[in-house]
């Protein structure tokens, strides 16, 4: 039937270009207005101060720990070794290629600077973002597991399972996350940590496991993760339930008629289809979780928001830093959203 039709460019109406123009004009107007207002209150924009919170050059001073004389300084390709000998013995100090502050034969005292070198370190915002990512990923993984089992329990005919699931879901969905975080940290946290501290046998086991000699306690991080995981789990459970119920009854009947047990039918037939269907709402839930992790600052977890707040109090650059903070969250959520869209497209074609 002749050559295939060439793809013709759709000619857009003029109103489209006018609309686009208005959008960019408004964007410029809002930005300009904000900038103008900040000038009115004499706010000084110092964007050049921001990069140091991502990456900075730390100065490290190596100090002597004993009194004595510098016996030998030896240089190798990348390192410098300073050997100091005194009444208490001989010590050697190795550091990367550096600025040397002593020469052979110098008499030095404990605490004197021997060498100075510089090292690149991740700034507080990167550390905060890493913490946000870590907390979110762990909470998402636990949230999926909790949600999956709760969703299945929710559909069970057994009252013990079903009612437990309903109670859990309603408790979580009916109370603010902030309050749940307080309960996890101040109530459960105090409870667990006090019980752990009082139990000698358990302490010994934990000390052995962690190689610690002090009293072992659960750090706030894990209460934060638990709060987020159980919060997310309740919502995931409802999505899993809806996903399973959306699969036609004939699928279960076909699986069971072939002799599969309930569990086999779930694993091989129902769940693969149901989970594929709930990827879009799950993606929305996980994006919410990343944003909700900003609440964890209140229980002394230094995630992105708390890190930004700390930097703002020392630098007095709130406008730049809070803007950056928002953009970093956007980066995390956008990346996750793209990743899940990729997964969704892959599972649908296969």
């Amino acid at each position: 039937m002749g050559p295939s039709p060439t793809v013709r460019r759709v000619r857009r109406p003029q109103s489209y270009y006018i609309g686009a123009g208005i959008f960019f004009l408004m964007l410029a107007a809002v930005t300009g207005f904000i900038y103008y207002s900040t000038l009115k209150i004499d706010y000084v924009w110092r964007w050049y101060r921001v990069p140091q919170y991502f990456l900075y050059h730390e100065t490290i001073e190596k100090r002597a720990e004993i009194n004595g004389t510098v016996q030998r300084i030896s240089r190798e390709a990348e390192t410098i070794t300073v050997v100091v000998s005194g009444d208490d013995g001989t010590e050697s100090y190795t550091s990367p290629a550096a600025d040397i502050r002593v020469s052979e034969g110098d008499v030095i005292y404990s605490g004197d600077v021997l060498t100075i070198h510089k090292k690149w370190k991740a700034g507080i915002l990167v550390q905060g973002m890493w913490m946000t990512l870590k907390v979110s990923v762990i909470a998402i993984i636990f949230g999926i597991v909790i949600g999956l089992f709760t969703g299945l329990a929710r559909l069970s005919d057994n009252p013990a399972l079903k009612w437990s699931a309903v109670t859990y879901i309603e408790l979580i969905r009916g109370s603010p996350l902030l309050v749940q975080i307080f309960i996890w940290y101040f109530a459960f946290g105090t409870l667990f940590n006090t019980l752990i501290a009082k139990n000698e046998g358990l302490q010994n086991i934990l000390r052995g496991l962690l190689g610690s000699t002090q009293i072992v306690q659960i750090p706030p991080l894990w209460f934060g993760v638990a709060a987020l995981a159980f919060f997310t789990g309740a919502y995931v459970a409802e999505m899993v339930r809806a996903g399973i119920q959306s699969i036609h009854r004939g699928q279960t009947e076909a699986a069971r008629s072939l002799g599969m047990t309930y569990a086999q039918g779930m694993v091989h037939v129902i769940l693969p289809q149901a989970l594929r269907r709930v990827i879009p709402p799950l993606a929305g839930q996980f994006i919410s979780l990343i944003k909700d992790s900003s609440l964890l600052g209140i229980i002394a977890i230094r995630e992105l928001t708390k890190a930004t707040r700390e930097v703002v109090t020392t630098s007095f650059q709130p406008f730049e830093l809070w803007t950056i903070c928002a953009l970093l969250y956007l980066f995390l959520t956008f990346t996750l959203s793209m990743a899940l869209q990729y997964v969704e497209r892959r599972t649908i074609t296969s």
């Binding site: 036609h248 699928q251 009947e253 076909a254 594929r276």
Partner: peptide, 11 residues
Amino acid sequence: MVFQSFNLFPH
């Protein structure tokens, strides 16, 4: 068993 609506596993 064979069903009216086939009920093959679409995935």
